[in-house]
């Protein structure tokens, strides 16, 4: 018992820090979201108010085009970015494992990951600039007129999503590379003896055996995309006309432009709930598969 108590003492500093810097802010944020800025209890009134704003959801977008509202933009970001970054990461990890100098190529690709997101946002701004950007230059070669892709409502969000692939794919590539090392060679050797083609081995061995890694990649990428802020803030500030606005940026706008902590708390709570709804089952299923 004494030993147990002694051991428990070591947890106290960490628990205290967690309580002050995680638990209290979370509880306080949720609490704030139920009150109006005048301090009146509104239960879900704030949620209704925030979700009915065009900045959050703009159904007119389905007839007219961007903006659709931050909520839809985040969904689009997840639907496009997540499969691409996971798929690209896996393909790159498999290919670079097989080729000579793959480690060097991996290191170069990984530079995108170590680039601070704010710097990444600035680079993206120039990458898509009609005057100096690489992409508009390449597009002009094939006859597409040069234009600043982040300046137009129909291309701003897609440009950012495309640019974010460069910044985030290295993460999935590295995780998949580590996962590939855990698959024993004899499994592939047995498959070759049985006459399996490389493609068949990829889908029958590599993909299933990397399932726990895929779970982590999907969860981490989902969370990253859900809270995406810095790239958008620096590259487009959510514009033009809110066409690339996302939830985290809208939360920032409520908090630091409108000084409306309650509306910001609503967005923060929604983000937290979605993050929990996705991450808890994924981590559970991954843990269940571990030996």
């Amino acid at each position: 018992m004494r030993t147990l108590r002694g051991r428990a003492l070591f947890f106290v500093p960490a628990l205290a820090l967690l309580a002050v810097f995680v638990v209290y802010p979370v509880v306080n944020t949720v609490w704030l979201s139920f009150f109006t800025s005048e301090g009146q209890f509104a239960l879900l009134g704030n949620y209704g108010e925030v979700l009915s704003q065009p900045e959050m959801f703009d159904p007119r977008g389905f007839a007219r085009g961007f903006p659709y509202g931050a909520l839809v933009h985040n969904v689009m970001w997840i639907v496009i970015h997540l499969p691409l970054t996971a798929g690209l990461g896996l393909v790159l990890a498999v290919i670079l494992r097989e080729i000579r100098g793959g480690a060097i190529v991996k290191s170069i690709i990984f530079l995108g990951m170590v680039t601070p997101m704010v710097v990444g946002g600035v680079i993206l701004r120039f990458l898509f600039d009609g005057n100096v950007g690489i992409l508009p230059s390449l597009m002009s070669i094939v006859g597409i007129p040069r234009r600043t892709l982040t300046a137009y409502p129909d291309t701003a969000l897609f440009s950012l999503i495309l640019g974010s692939l460069w910044l985030w794919t290295p993460f999935s590539m590295i995780l998949y590379s580590a996962g590939l090392e855990t698959i024993p060679d004899y499994v592939y050797e047995a498959a070759v003896i049985d006459g399996a083609s490389p493609m068949r081995a990829f889908f029958a061995i590599t993909v299933p055996m990397l399932r726990p890694v895929t779970g982590v990649v999907i969860t981490m990428t989902f969370l990253w995309v859900l809270k995406i802020f810095d790239i958008v803030y620096v590259a487009t500030m959510g514009g033009p006309g809110g066409a690339s606005n996302v939830l985290a940026l809208q939360m920032y706008m409520y908090a630091f432009r409108e000084f409306d902590a309650n509306s910001a708390a609503v967005v923060a709570t929604l983000l937290m709930l979605v993050a929990l709804a996705v991450s808890i089952p994924t981590f559970r299923s991954v843990r269940g598969e571990q030996p």
Binding site: A151, Y152, P153, M237, G239, P240, G242, A243
Partner: peptide, 9 residues
């Protein structure tokens, strides 16, 4: 932000 939209649309 709205003027940025107006400029291109």
């Amino acid at each position: 932000d709205q003027l940025k939209l107006l400029w291109v649309s």
